[in-house]
């Protein structure tokens, strides 16, 4: 092997990498927040919602969980304009991540809700709480606490999966790597550095989510 590694391109291209990192963080922040919100709403619908809503939510969850994220992204970005919905690259990437995480977190949150003892619902009802109030104050928070570790790893998986949004030219970290390798011809080094950044982001995100969990569920004994 006569190849010499060179990282001198870093001095010239680090702003590109930084911008890519920021976009990836923005994607997972929006995707994570709205995705989990959507997933929680769907979990409510599937576990406790009206009967007509359940099959719709099930169909959504099964369809998303059994197709690749890349195809969902292409469908939203290339397919939806023929229905009149034209999104920018970043909007499409954000929407795809919300829709994707929504389906996965629905299943995770639902597992947490189903683990709620029957008596908790009855206790809420006997305090004259409406079903919505019972869900909001009695069921949801302990359910989220139970499934927080599983939810955290799903958010990390979605963050890593967001690498493919570069394929619709959303300018995330992978897009930056592609850009750099096409300019500097240092493909291996560019992807090597980017992979290391993704690994660091994954570790940081995991710790941030653990810290957020500790903050939200502080003063609540685990059950």
């Amino acid at each position: 092997m006569t190849y010499t590694f060179s990282f001198t391109w870093l001095t010239e291209y680090y702003p590109v990498l930084l911008k890519g990192i920021l976009v990836t963080i923005e994607l997972i922040a929006v995707g994570g927040l709205f995705g989990v919100a959507l997933g929680t709403a769907c979990a409510w619908a599937r576990a406790l919602g009206p009967a007509w809503l359940k099959p719709l939510v099930s169909a959504y969850v099964e369809l998303i969980r059994n197709t690749p994220f890349l195809i969902q992204l292409f469908f939203i970005f290339f397919g939806l304009p023929s229905l009149g919905l034209r999104l920018s690259e970043l909007e499409a990437a954000n929407l795809a991540m919300v829709v994707n995480l929504g389906a996965y977190s629905c299943e995770i949150v639902r597992a947490g809700i189903q683990a709620t003892p029957r008596g908790q619902f009855e206790a809420g009802a006997s305090l004259a709480m409406s079903p919505i109030q019972t869900f909001r104050y009695v069921v949801l928070v302990p359910a989220l606490q139970r499934i927080w570790p599983a939810l955290s790893s799903q958010v990390v998986i979605v963050m890593l999966g967001s690498a493919v949004v570069s394929q619709i030219a959303a300018e995330d970290l992978t897009f930056a790597a592609n850009f750099i390798q096409s300019r500097s011809f240092r493909a291996f080094e560019a992807y090597f550095v980017t992979t290391a950044i993704y690994l660091a982001l994954a570790i940081l995100l995991r710790q941030a989510l653990a810290a957020i969990g500790a903050m939200i569920f502080a003063r609540r004994p685990a059950r």
Binding site: V156, L160, G161, S162, A163, V164, T174, A177, Y191, T194, T195, Y198, L199, A202, I203
Partner: peptide
């Protein structure tokens, strides 16, 4: 598990 499959 900590890096994107695409990067791999």
């Amino acid at each position: 598990q900590g890096t994107p499959l695409l990067m791999q």
